[in-house]
Amino acid sequence: MLKVEKLQAWYGNSHILQGIDLEVKTGELVCLIGRNGAGKTTTIRGIMGLTSRVEGRVMFDGQDVTKQPTHTRNGLGLGYVPEERRIVPGLTVRDNLRLGLLAAKHGGREADVIAEVAETFPRLAERLDQDAITMSGGEQQMLAIARALVSRPKLLMLDEPSEGIMPVLVDEMFELFARLRDKGTTILLVEQNVELALGIADRAYIMDQGEIVYQASAKILLADAAIQERYCSV
């Protein structure tokens, strides 16, 4: 589904990614973990075409998308929920969802899609006509995820979805990710909450200083306290 080869990226003059190799197979839930500043967010942004200067190759669904603009990558089925959530202020919950639906290729009717969202996210259903930015952090995160899902992406990339959210909601959210994977959505998850992430993931990559330093199945990593301690403890 996704294959990243020797991806390098820069922010201004600083060389952030030193050559990343990473693969996500169809139907997998892969998580990308590591300390703050390890380059996890830059990796996802590079995959999405949001870094100004990159080298290397990003293959998605059999196509080389390295030179494609961001909106085209979304059109091919790459969904992305950024860390800052980026709920558009001044727009209602419904309009934020509509925005996610505008470029969708599946041609589903708006009413049907909203009904689907309402089923998955009952909290959003009650707030469809509320200014989205007035909702709580957790509800905004739900909306950001729902908005990325309405176009039915083949691969969903999530950057730190649990950050700043009540623990009860975090559990709920991770259950949702596992369900999505079971229903066929491939997922790449960046997460600080290592134990929870490994709990639902199939495989994991660990990043440190702009490089992938370790990869293994989630089960093995979950059992390996030494590795977790070395690369993930704050």
Binding site: M48, H71, Y80, R86, V88, L99, L102, R147, S151
Partner: peptide
């Protein structure tokens, strides 16, 4: 209109509009 929605959203945050698949 859908176009108006894109314009309103794009004025606030063009990047998320791109991320959602729209050619800004």
């Amino acid at each position: 209109t859908p176009y108006g929605l894109i314009i309103r959203a794009g004025a606030r945050d063009p990047q998320i509009v791109r991320i959602l698949g729209i050619d800004v």
